[in-house]
């Protein structure tokens, strides 16, 4: 029982990391990044491959963050020329490119067979529930640090400029600030977070394969921040909790509503998430924690 909730909490915490990164990019800077899962993929494979080589976790996590951030650099340069929808298309394409590269470079990634047997984190604490709880605590700690940094960013001059870029890029230029550097930095920062999330994911699931990193993940993160509140740090957390409550809660719904079979429930689940998303955009477009008064 506890182990199941710990498992859900771990996935929520990993998704929260992803959501925080996307929130920085979209919520604060206005970059429509549809390729978030690509950076997660880079992080996950980096961590998995380095763990195979016997690297200690702190180093491989650092490498995952750095490589994911570096992968975002070229995308950042693209964002110079492309705004809004066009950037969205390019970033979506980017994440697919990452997935196809990982699929094709079999010498490195074992292709579609994936990399099994990635060791668990915090193995020294024991096994079972204790180990899982240790991973959860670590994830919570990482999330807290990231949230504190985010809050710091929001209130810093850097934060004011990226929000200004979101609101009116031309005005920022007119005031003598060059948006390019800021956008690239925001993208790399968000990608680094996704890379760390990917590293946690790889170690937690214990197995990575290219078909785990499909755009669906990106859009689940999008759902989370839309429901939670775009541009709010707290929105990222609340949104992921709501998303997971929908996805996982529906399992229990079936236990109390006996006439729905799992086969039907699978469709009901997607329907309910879609309905919730529509209702949110209709009646609370700013999200649960959102505050659009400033826009």
């Amino acid at each position: 029982m506890e182990a199941y909730f710990v498992a859900i909490a771990i996935i929520v915490a990993i998704y929260t990391l992803l959501a925080l990164g996307l929130n920085l990019q979209y919520g604060l800077t206005g970059l429509i990044n549809f390729g978030h899962v690509g950076f997660m993929c880079v992080g996950a494979y980096t961590a998995a491959l380095l763990a195979e080589q016997g690297w200690p976790a702190p180093l491989s996590f650092l490498a995952a963050a750095i490589l994911a951030a570096l992968a975002a650099y070229p995308l950042g340069l693209v964002s110079l020329k492309l705004r809004d929808d066009y950037f969205a298309i390019v970033s979506l394409g980017f994440s697919e490119v990452v997935r196809i590269v990982v699929t094709s470079e079999r010498w490195l990634t074992n292709g579609v067979q994936g990399i099994p047997g990635i060791p668990k984190l915090m193995g020294f604490t024991g096994s079972g529930l204790v180990q899982a709880s240790a991973v959860l605590l670590l994830l919570i700690a990482v999330n807290i640090v990231v949230i504190l940094v985010m809050r710091r960013i929001v209130h810093s001059p850097f934060g004011r400029i990226i929000e200004a870029i979101r609101d009116n890029e031309d005005a920022v230029k007119a005031l003598g600030k060059e948006p390019v550097g800021f956008k690239v930095r925001v993208l790399m920062l968000g990608a680094a977070l996704a890379g760390i999330a990917g590293a946690f994911y790889a170690h937690y699931i214990g197995y990575v394969a290219p078909d785990q990193f499909i755009p669906l993940i990106t859009f689940q993160i999008w759902m989370a921040i839309i429901m939670g509140g775009v541009g709010r740090v707290s929105g990222a957390l609340v949104g992921t909790v709501i998303l997971m409550a929908f996805l996982e809660g529906s399992r229990f719904l079936r236990d109390v509503v006996p006439f729905i079979s799992e086969v039907e429930m699978a469709s009901v689940r997607l329907g309910v998430v879609g309905l919730a998303l529509i209702l949110f955009t209709l009646y609370r477009p700013q999200g649960l924690m959102g505050d659009f008064t400033r826009r």
Partner: peptide, 8 residues
């Protein structure tokens, strides 16, 4: 997650 739920 589904397997965790089934098992736990």
């Amino acid at each position: 997650l589904a397997a965790k739920k089934l098992i736990e």
